[in-house]
Nucleic acid binder design. Structure first.
Length: 876
RNA sequence: GCCGGAGUGGCGGAAUGGCAGACGCGCAGGUCUCAAAAACCUGUAGGCCUCGGCCUGUGUGGGUUCGACUCCCACCUCCGGCACCA
């Protein structure tokens, strides 16, 4: 009696065995090398896993098992990105502290992951909320502070006037309303910690080179950093001592400038309004118009400004600037299409070569001068928006630039302007500095103290260097001196906690709702805020903001690879020496991450932030590599069966617990790998899952034959064995190419042949070959293969420690091939010939085919193409 | 508007210059059964048809090639992201 395939009867058993025997323990011992295979660790929400999560986790699990079986040392860890707003809000709602709620969520996630058979080294599990981990996150903050990369500045944050609370970006809906109460949010100025990521902008673009990432993601990172080279040109205002600076990336078009536009918030406008800029040309009427326009703009929300579309509005200031290139007077206007925070808040208008400038010029009847033509030389005037020429070309109407191409014209004009001291070359970035503080409870407390009395004495902790901390080289040390000088003044009175006082834990309090002032909830807890100055000992206040959710994920991959994470013997406090011995040394054995897998939604932020931290840590001499992630692959989202996103509110979420209860974990894993190419979005289908379930059932049944002994093994080198070896070769090739769907298809194809051999002739694989098949299936279906391996084949050691099957290449050598025969490119027949047959013989064989004869009358043809082993094509 | 990704049977997809539709789902017919489920077998792009074949066919239109789903040019549609970025 053959045992039925009932995964429920053995999956749990093997899960426990693997855990007990530490089957997946990571250690550096192999001479073959290492593979660090990492998932983007999840945020443990209250809802638990849905079937979308295991898609990425199964992929990394297959890679890990595959490399382990090939003899590599594999580090495959899992942990929890557990700080953040959803947990905080859920805890507020449940009237509890996230410190009690989050571990419950984690326990559920862990249970589900173990159920799915992922081969994580659970000894390295940790959460970003563990004080043992975030003591280091805080320590790193302090090191970055001492490099001059962090400073405090008043910055507008999102603020909900109805809820009286500061909001994170993700709490604001695209229409500018608060996701919870639905009311319009506003901006509020609050002091924020700023992380100066722009100091690394160039480096972060340049070192994208050499990463094996999807092209699209690399492109998005490049665009996000958005490096632009241009020049800031200064225009004096006629009849005054004032001037206006404008940034442009197209100085070659500057002879075509016909106006200047200021953002309504530009500082010069206030001066004009207050009458501090005088010139005979400004009339009181203009001043009223200016006042009205500025007031109108300020009354509008950002949303209103955008929703009004591209229709240009504006007002003339009455002043004229001088374009010193040609001494032309150009009017100075105000318009809200110019953004105060971009560039200098002022734009020089070249309407012939910029669409927005053109719309503005048309609206207010300003002149349009063409200065660039395309290669066809058409220099007709620009009359319609569709004629605006924004591309590069040949310069005209521009004095000494005439006839030059855009690139050369740009170089010459920039040198000329710098020589005359009328302009200065600038590299600008789309990338902004990173607002690194949150007015929230559930995050790493920022380990800083503010001392009033030290501030008065103009003292700060910025220049105190950590003992033992060495910059990578003198060039970097020099660079950080400049960075520090730029912000020193704003840092008077600020001191980092002494490292012996780390971690700085969150106070255990029942209430931590945001304060009416928009400040962090910690600001209301005096037992937390009141402290003494690390420098002078007088009364001082702690920083009450916490770090954003990103902080913990910026370096977690190093902690997984550390010694400390695996040991119960934790360091007393962070320090450079402790970093080197506990984290630096061991992580060098594993870094960089070889495979990093997660959703494409992290294309920019997380991947950029963690790259930035690594680069800065490299400069601090804390790590030996700048780039954390060598290979990145994106997992496609799994939609619900109704083709919508899975969401509690739609009621269409599929829970892996239910799927596993009915079909087993192996079926879920196999199906998710088979359903579509890995990075593609795809809808869930329980129906289609049954195909994978059936496949496993059939393998199971054939496997059981070996227990009963009613098999007749095939002789060596039979067709089925060769098909098996081809399948092994295919799977071996497909897995590292992340083509799991075709790897599974190949195994299904093999099964079809195997079954046919058994059904027709009661013939089957030798025991040795069965083992090989089980091994290549093992990474996909670890439970079932282990069950057959141990209970049918009576193996003593786990299949997951076995070696990947080698393929005897000589058996795969093809001796005979089917050559399709085409006549004029259409298939008319085929011949079976030895692979090394010569051309003339193929042709004569082909001409024996009666169908071919019909299309090649009397065997005459104009030409014939023979691609050995592939095709034969007669042209008649 | 810009950037990125994708268009192939009833459905998910395979093939990246050489027999389009592997593999799976679904569907149809059959075997087993009192019956159903499960399992197994056969068929399954469309059209024509003398059942041996013939024609058409990979979003659209052109091109390169002996040969194009695959390469090139132009366009259409869908999905994702950003958006008055000087």
């Amino acid at each position: 009696m053959t045992k039925k395939y009932q995964p429920q009867t053995f999956e749990k058993h093997w899960q426990n065995e693997w855990e007990k025997n530490k089957t997946y323990k990571a250690a550096r011992t192999s001479s073959k090398g290492k593979k660090y295979v990492l998932d983007m660790f999840p945020y443990p929400s209250g809802a638990g896993l849905h079937v979308g999560h295991p898609r990425g986790y199964t992929a990394t699990d297959i890679l890990s098992r595959y490399y382990r079986m090939q003899g590599y040392d594999v580090l495959h860890p899992m942990g929890w990105d557990a700080f953040g707003l959803p947990a905080e809000n859920a805890a507020i709602k449940a009237k509890t502290n996230p410190k009690t709620l989050v571990p419950q969520n984690i326990a559920n996630f862990r249970r589900q992951m173990k159920m799915l058979g992922f081969s994580y080294d659970w000894d390295r599990e940790f959460a970003t909320t563990d004080p043992t981990y975030f003591k280091w996150t805080q320590w790193l903050f302090i090191q970055f502070f001492r490099m001059g990369l962090l400073y405090k500045k008043n910055t507008p944050i999102n603020y909900c006037p109805t809820c009286k609370t500061g909001l994170a970006e993700e709490e604001v809906l695209p229409d500018g309303t608060h996701e919870r109460c639905g009311n319009q949010i506003t901006k509020k100025d609050l002091p924020q910690w700023i992380f100066r990521i722009t100091k690394y902008a160039d480096e972060l673009v340049d070192s994208l080179e050499g990463l094996e990432w999807p092209k699209g993601i690399l492109e998005m990172q490049r665009n996000w950093i958005g490096r632009k080279e241009g020049i800031t040109i200064t225009y004096p205002i006629e009849g005054t001592t004032e001037s206006i600076s404008c940034f442009t990336t197209r100085p070659d078009t500057n002879y075509g400038a016909t106006f200047i536009v200021l953002a309504p918030e530009h500082p010069l406008i206030e001066k004009i309004q207050k009458g501090k800029v005088t010139s005979t040309t400004v009339t009181p009427k203009n001043l009223k118009e200016i006042n009205d326009y500025v007031a109108q703009t300020k009354a509008k929300t950002e949303l209103e400004r955008i929703s009004e579309g591209r229709k240009k509005t504006g007002v003339f200031t009455g002043f004229y600037a001088v374009n010193r290139l040609n001494n032309k007077k150009i009017p100075v206007w105000i318009s809200d299409f110019v953004l105060k925070d971009f560039g200098t808040g002022a734009v020089v208008g070249v309407p012939a070569h910029d669409r927005r400038d053109f719309e503005f010029a048309q609206e207010f009847n300003l002149p349009i001068v063409r200065v660039v033509v395309s290669n066809d030389g058409d220099s007709s005037p620009i009359k319609k928006a569709s004629q605006v020429y924004e591309d590069e070309g040949i310069t005209i109407n521009s004095d000494f630039l005439n006839g030059l191409d855009t690139h050369k014209a740009k170089e010459q004009i920039m040198s000329y302007l710098e020589e005359k001291n009328w302009g200065k070359r600038i590299v600008s970035y789309h990338l902004r500095d990173w607002i690194f503080s949150r007015q929230r409870y559930w995050g790493e407390p920022i380990p800083m103290v503010y001392c009033e009395s030290c501030a008065e004495k103009k003292i700060s902790g910025i220049s105190q260097k950590e003992k033992g901390l060495e910059f990578r080289n003198q060039g970097i040390e020099k660079k950080t001196k400049t960075w520090k000088a730029e912000i020193e003044e704003s840092m008077y009175g600020w001191f980092p906690l002494s490292e012996t006082n780390l971690p700085l834990d969150l106070p255990d309090v029942p209430s931590y709702e945001p304060l009416e002032s928009g400040e962090s909830p910690l600001a209301g807890i005096t037992s937390f805020t009141d402290t003494s100055c690390p420098n002078c000992g007088s009364n001082a206040k702690r920083e009450t903001d916490t770090m954003p959710n990103w902080a913990g994920s910026c370096w977690y991959f190093l902690y997984f690879a550390s010694s400390e994470v695996q040991s119960s013997n934790l360091v007393q406090h962070p320090s450079t020496d402790n970093w080197k011995s506990e984290i630096g040394k061991e992580s060098e054995n594993w870094m960089p991450v070889d495979w990093y897998v997660g959703g494409a939604e992290h294309a920019v932020l997380h991947l950029l932030y963690s790259r930035f931290w690594m680069h800065a840590m490299y400069d601090l001499g804390l790590v030996n590599k700048q780039e954390p992630f060598m290979r990145l692959r994106n997992v496609g989202m799994i939609l619900a069966e109704d083709n919508r996103k899975m969401s509690k509110s739609w009621g269409n979420v599929i829970n892996p617990d239910d799927v596993v209860a009915e079909y087993g974990a192996d079926s879920l894993r196999l199906y998710e790998m088979f359903m579509a190419p890995f990075s593609q979005e795809i809808a869930w289908s329980t129906r289609t899952l049954q195909g994978s379930y059936r496949f496993l059932k059939r393998v199971w049944s054939l496997g059981q034959l070996y227990a009963n002994g009613d098999t007749q093994n095939l002789p060596e080198n039979n067709d089925l064995q060769i098909k098996l070896y081809k399948t092994i070769a295919k799977v071996t090739k497909d897995v590292p190419e992340i083509k799991f769907n075709t790897a599974v298809a190949a195994m299904m194809e093999f099964l079809n042949e195997w079954e046919r051999a058994y059904n027709l002739h009661k013939e089957t694989l030798s025991k040795d070959d069965l083992k090989k098949f089980l091994k290549i299936l093992a990474p996909f279906a670890p439970y079932m293969t282990e069950e057959i391996w141990r209970n049918v084949l009576q193996e003593k050691e786990s299949i997951h420690g076995a070696l990947w099957p080698e393929v005897d290449e000589s058996l795969l050598k093809i001796t005979n091939v089917d050559i399709p025969i085409q006549v004029n490119g259409k298939v008319r027949g085929s011949v079976t010939v030895p692979i090394d047959i010569d051309r003339d013989k193929v042709i004569s064989e082909a001409l024996k085919d009666t169908r071919v004869q019909k299309y090649v009358p009397e065997g005459t043809y104009k030409k014939v193409i023979y691609v050995p082993g592939k095709i034969l094509n007669f042209i008649v």
